[in-house]
Design a protein around this nucleic acid. Sequence first.
DNA 1: TAATACGTTTAGTTTGAACTAAACATAATG
DNA 2: CATTATGTTTAGTTCAAACTAAACGTATTA
Lengths: 177, 177
Amino acid sequence: MSQIEDARAHTIQGLSHISNFWGFSKGMGAIFGALYLSQTPLSLDELVEQVNITKGAVSTNIRHLERLGLVQKQVIIGERKDFYTAETDFWKIAQGILREREKSEFDRAIHTVAESLVMIDTAGALSPEEAKLALFYQKRLQTLADFFKSLDRLVAALLSMESLVGSTFDRLLGRKE
Amino acid sequence: MSQIEDARAHTIQGLSHISNFWGFSKGMGAIFGALYLSQTPLSLDELVEQVNITKGAVSTNIRHLERLGLVQKQVIIGERKDFYTAETDFWKIAQGILREREKSEFDRAIHTVAESLVMIDTAGALSPEEAKLALFYQKRLQTLADFFKSLDRLVAALLSMESLVGSTFDRLLGRKE
DNA sequence: TAATACGTTTAGTTTGAACTAAACATAATG
DNA sequence: CATTATGTTTAGTTCAAACTAAACGTATTA
């Protein structure tokens, strides 16, 4: 029935949008969607057909998805093709994204601000106005650094909750009691 | 001293990158950076000069920044120009972004999944395999919906913490005791 | 009322990410 | 060993977002 196919297409298109919104390609969202709404693992060729993008693009996108933990490769014995399945635990997925993407980005941010602070620290003799400006920068940069460090701790805390995922948040938010 | 100017440039460039990473334009990050590292409010023309993009772009970007709560317009009496200052409370900023961007995006996601579920519900007579597929979709879509709803609650919870911001998280994460 | 100062809008351009098509590398099969 | 099946890499293309330049609207000043 077309109604059901429509629901599938609608969901996939929605996931494409979300993927895009979160800074990934639409293709990644669509591929994940196709896998998430498949009762069986899919091969690369099947994905090419279902999602309607070329093999190269699927290949690239799916490796990215794998690295993030959104998709798992299934090696089926006696089969030459690779098969893929979607991760269905979204809290796990969130962790994967936090780990692979946000973490390194926070590290980078912290590093950049630290560098800026060093530049100021190692500046030579300063005129009175320069000294005042330097002090101002230091204060602002320190605020920024503190913020990033807090975010970093938050992420680290979430990532260390491995075994609790799936229940912790839900309980925290009142979905289960 | 050039060392200090370098620190400023380095920070601004870092903020541009971060802005871009979070799905905003680099220009927005640069403009915010210029304001954040300014001891005085800046006019549009001063920003044009400092950030080195055209008036039109600054105008567009700064309105976006304002809407997100990253920047405030200061109407100075007796001055025809608008002046802008950067918000310096980053937890407030995070809230602004959550409110303006994430919230509506979650709403959209929830809505899309709900639509898909309706499509399945209203599908007519189904063959046995179709019925089985429909059931499978329903289960998966429900899982997805639950996840989005949890995220939505999380965001709502964070947004309702208005008065606590700045201390709550830090305490939560052990930065202060 | 003319001239100026300012912010916004618009038409066109630039740019980078994600795509396609096709060549390629590798392993399995006959 | 030639052929086929498969996934990856690459050179080139497409497309949308963000930019520029310039026109525009509006308020202020002379």
